[in-house]
Design a binder for these strands. Structure first.
Lengths: 138, 138
DNA sequence: TAGATATCTCCAGAGACTATAGGTTTGGAG
DNA sequence: CTCCAAACCTATAGTCTCTGGAGATATCTA
């Protein structure tokens, strides 16, 4: 039986975060010691590692809740799990595209500025004031 | 003189968001009509467009507050404005790098799954359970 | 002048935690 | 066995950038 602190050390998930996951219904309410402290088993460790990994990949709480629910029915087809991961992949790709546009715009703005003239002539400030100076929509 | 709704329509910033910016000190407290409603002038329109543009580029409120403060001193050198933009560019680039790693990992996971077998054999679920199946750190 | 629309303030919620306060339990040293 | 520090408990508030609602007031149009 592991304490919440042990679980935390083994998974790298902070103690308050573990309690938060319990509250959000990702982890089942743990058994308690006589003194009302949480006690965990191997199963909980695996579940928490799953959650941690999914969060690292950027999945949000509700997607993880769904995946956990699916994994409880091992004999059903996995189309939904695939869909969740595929949707997420798409949203990651969208985010990358958006950030790349920002990167270009920012790089262009910064490249015009040597950091060494007066604010009134600064391209950084001027570009922010005037969207018309931008190359593309964003 | 523009009402808050007019300002909203012209800039595309929602009414409660304009009030929020005022509260955060990005916009000066507006003049008021006899009946206590906010009234704006061209200056405010420009300021709000500046804020909107900076937000679109992903700058956070405190960075924008700093840029506005700088722009009030047109004769000082612009090194700080350049630094803010350059720092931000770096953080955008870092974010892109991270997302690209995620993208690769997710794409690999999804590619192993045809969405058509049982959950217990699903690579999506298995990869989430077992970090060891991953190609790289993330 | 009536009624529709816009505005006001204040408060709550989103998401995913993180931190604090004030109190209780546990585990190891002496 | 006793004591004390460390870990744990609950409850609550704060982070960040908005967004939405309730209930009251103001403005505009017919």
């Amino acid at each position: 039986m592991l304490s919440i602190g042990d679980l935390s050390k083994r998974t790298g998930v902070k103690v308050p975060t573990i309690r938060y996951y319990e509250q959000m219904g990702l982890l089942a309410a743990a058994e308690r010691s006589e003194g009302n402290q949480r006690r965990y088993e191997r199963q909980d460790l695996e579940r928490l590692a799953f959650i941690r990994h999914a969060r690292d990949l950027g999945l949000d709480i509700s997607a993880i809740r769904e995946l956990i629910a699916l994994s409880q029915h091992p004999h059903q087809p996995c189309g939904n799990a695939d869909r969740i991961a595929t949707d997420h992949l798409k949203s990651v790709r969208d985010k990358i595209e958006k950030l790349k546009k920002l990167e270009q715009e920012l790089a262009r703005i910064v490249s015009h500025c040597d950091g060494d003239h007066a604010i009134e002539d600064c391209y950084v400030i001027r570009s922010l004031s005037d969207h018309g100076l931008c190359d593309s929509e964003h």
